[in-house]
Write a protein that binds this DNA or RNA. Structure first.
Lengths: 219, 219
DNA sequence: TTTCACCGTTCAGCACATTGTCAGGAAACG
DNA sequence: CGTTTCCTGACAATGTGCTGAACGGTGAAA
């Protein structure tokens, strides 16, 4: 999925980009409205992530222009806590959803999925795995033989990463980062423990061990 | 789309009607509550545009009566700048959105589209859930083992959100937004309290807890 | 008007789920 | 065989959700 992120706070932008790249999305970043316009002219994006509080002009105008030109690219706007009027204006200008800063990166993922799904009209983005396991990434739900399986947030964080890149082997280090946002090296076998717990819930065969490297889920 | 406009300022009413007619909508106009009641009796409208400041009675009462009778016709209320309390009351009485006068006619169109879209998105008015619970989304009514269950407006606001996305886990943040229309973030466990009350009315198993995230109802 | 019932909200305490860690055992590998 | 890597049961500390109680506000009834 091609995503255009328009955001001038660089730290936030980097965090968002890293997170989305890690989920396998293609992210372009622009820090200003003019840049964004140029990029929009050159590429067809699937989703637009738009901060309304930009230095060189109103993000709202960008969105309005887009809609005026007939573009229906889904758009999620990012606003600060107190800019309630911006949110309303944004929705009226044609935004599909909004997120209030600071937001959880996983929530961002969920909304992205929801918005793009709403748009593409495919209601069930279920991923099927071995052992009768199905996963709804956007809805954060897992079925095993049709039964719902409850995962804790850590368990989901790990499993989510693996399901997003089926067939790929993920190193323990990568998976660790899914658990502990920034670096924060932890010397322990936490990942192993969680894999163990996941296997108990989902069955032995869903998560394969790649000795010396990490783990992998089949597509 | 059939629209009923209840508004006593004739200039404004004319402007609104002209604008909507030009968009291809069917607009009826009433300048008083009693007229509106008569027209509502005779016709099924898709959207109700309601000024709260009417000469012969409170528009709010009209709305409350409608909701009490089980009508779920989407309603956008029109208020003047300073009547903030009216807005809150209106939303509590069952309005779907509000517009502050003077408003841009294009903004009106946008809200109309948004409100009606919100409703037309539910092709299946009757949803069956676990525990013998049936929900009529359009009619705002809930049955348990065939018995009618009364939900308060907040309870409904929450439950409605969950039933509309069965199988999906909704974060507490998302659900909070269902309670407090736009913003005004409140730090409390209000969502939990309402879930608790809903469970008492609907049974333990209808609403599942997803720890660390939020809640979910089964399809 | 007063009274009453109900609703929305907040808070505090309890109960229990989750988490990170460790240690001992199992399995893979040379 | 030894070594390395991985698995998993147990545990204490922490975190999170649930729910009864209480309070102020609002509308309806008397």
């Amino acid at each position: 999925m091609r995503i255009l992120l328009v955001e001038d706070e660089l730290m936030l932008a980097d965090a968002v980009r890293d997170h989305l790249l890690a989920s396998g999305e293609a992210v372009d970043h622009s820090a200003s409205v003019v840049d964004a316009e140029i990029m929009l002219r050159g590429t067809n994006y699937d989703v637009l992530l738009l901060d309304l509080n930009l230095p060189d002009g109103k993000g709202l105008d960008l969105l309005r222009d887009l809609r005026r030109q007939g573009s229906a690219t889904p758009c999620i706007i990012l606003t600060a806590q107190d800019q309630i009027s911006d949110r309303i204006e944004g929705l009226n200008a044609g935004a599909d959803d909004y997120l209030v800063k600071p937001f959880d990166l996983n929530e961002l993922s969920a909304r992205l999925a929801a918005v793009s799904r709403r748009y593409s009209g495919n209601p069930n983005p279920f991923v099927e795995l071995e052992g009768g396991v199905e996963v709804d990434l956007a809805g954060r739900s897992v079925l095993r033989d049709g039964e719902h399986i409850d995962l804790t947030s850590r368990e989901w964080a790990l499993f989510d990463q693996m399901v997003k890149r089926p067939g790929q082997t993920l190193s323990k280090r990568q998976l660790e980062e899914a658990l502990y946002e920034f670096g924060a090296e932890i010397e322990s076998n936490t990942v192993e423990v969680y894999v163990s717990r996941l296997r108990r819930k989902l069955g032995r065969d869903v998560i394969k061990t790649v000795r010396g490297v990490g783990y992998r889920v089949e597509g």
